[in-house]
Design a protein around this nucleic acid. Structure first.
Lengths: 253, 253
DNA sequence: AATAGCCTTTTGTCCGACAAAGCCTGCTTT
DNA sequence: AAAGCAGGCTTTGTCGGACAAAAGGCTATT
């Protein structure tokens, strides 16, 4: 048992990043505000431009500021940060299995649909209907089906009116739903069953029927799992890195 | 509807970061491996050291590499990234309410305890027992009680054997459980009830009793909420930024 | 008013340099 | 000969200055 922690001398670029972060977290700088040019920061902080730039990289990667087309630097919506992508990547590096993804999705997506039953508004319901229409029209195109399934769940998450839950489900969803494409490709009847399940879920949410919405969400996910196994995959195998790299790079933009 | 996406010309430092990231994600560089000195990277990539350094900042902040005491750079365990902290910060910036935190915790912690019923091993159960002992000995110290409560739920999450779920709950937990201290301070009987609930949860997990574990976890969380309200707080108020800043900075180390 | 061309600002990258901190190696001391 | 120390080497963090290319703004032309 040591008495003292190691002393960490903060470097200049870290202090630059922290100073700007403090302004954002405190609310003195709001999303959309400009940070100023690098030269301006050099003047204010009294450090070299290289140092300022390193600090900016930290903030950029932290999702606090954004630079558009190598131009002005401004505070960005905290949502935008692409943090989920990085969590997903960490999960892949830990060799998590599809079972873990599935079990987590079961917990989170059922929680989401419960919230949606209480909070879904007309606009989101309309968006869900539109998603459903497109899904029914595209049951023979695995790529589009996978995208629409992913969007369906994202819309539902938005509809549940809980931003914490919405964000909590994102990393798993990013790894989970892309497999839908593979499933649809190998299990022909999969897309049809999915469309049917979505239909029931939407109806249950509209009818504010908690129990029914839960039931159909569970059924929908169990179906996904069955399809996964029928497509010849093993539920306890880790999410492969190559696949994940592809899926995540697509989502990053 | 535009036909083409904007073309993004990658800058050199981004390519440096991506090149190293690719090695890590593909598994050719494993946690613990050294990346090499800045000078070595300069030679290999044929770019300036400033450029390499900017790339390194990106990777560092992304939680892929770590530099210890301003010394050698090496690939780090994906878990370490401190990403949850940043998600929590984003949530605070979005002014999420305690209700959102609570509802999410309800979904996730119940999911966690279900997993724990199936997967908890002897070592974790022992750790939970030890946590319980310390909790019962400290019911009069709000600071310690809050820490132990937070640890209790983290242990349970570890016990559930699902790293995806474990990581999904972290951002909410980081914002949620610190309030326990405030509650214990203002509601004297709170800590005792908490110890009792923990006791029942541990026993239910040990007995592999799914339904009982669920029931007590729900009860435990509902209790937290009652305490929150009895402490004079409003469940629909946003998590304050000052509080969050304090809580998160503590957790970062 | 719209456009083309010019000028200015800003970013991305490069070069070279140096102090401070860690690491290593060889020397001194016991 | 082993342990301890000092000095030298390596590497990081920071600095100052420089320049091409892109973006933005301004003016004159049609």
């Amino acid at each position: 048992m040591e008495r003292f922690d190691r002393i960490k001398v903060p470097s200049a670029y870290e202090m630059v990043a922290e100073a700007i972060e403090a302004e954002i977290v405190s609310g003195r700088l709001r999303p959309g505000d400009e940070i100023g040019t690098e030269a301006a920061l050099v003047r204010q902080f009294g450090v070299n431009r290289s140092t300022v730039r390193e600090g900016i990289r930290v903030l950029e990667q932290g999702g606090l500021v954004r630079r558009e087309a190598s131009r002005k630097l401004f505070v960005c919506e905290p949502r935008a940060g692409g943090l989920s992508t990085r969590i997903s990547r960490a999960l892949v590096l830990q060799d998590v299995t599809f079972r873990e993804l599935f079990d987590t999705a079961m917990v989170l997506e059922v929680g989401v649909v419960e919230g949606a039953v209480f909070h879904a508004d007309a606009a989101t319901l309309a968006a869900l209907e539109q998603n459903q229409e497109r899904l029914e029209a595209a049951v023979n195109n695995p790529v589009v089906v996978a995208e629409l399934d992913s969007e369906f769940h994202a819309l539902l998450a938005r509809a549940c009116g809980n931003r914490v839950l919405e964000m909590a489900r994102e990393p798993a969803a990013l790894l989970f739903f892309p497999s839908t494409e593979m499933i649809c490709r190998r299990v022909p009847e999969g897309a049809g069953r999915m469309a049917q399940a979505h239909r029931f879920i939407i109806d249950a949410v509209k009818a504010r029927d908690l129990e029914l919405s839960r039931t159909w969400m569970r059924r929908h996910l169990v179906d996904w799992r069955k399809g996964f196994v029928r497509a010849g995959r093993e539920i306890d195998e880790p999410v492969e890195r190559i696949f994940a790299r592809y899926a995540l790079s697509k989502s990053q933009s």
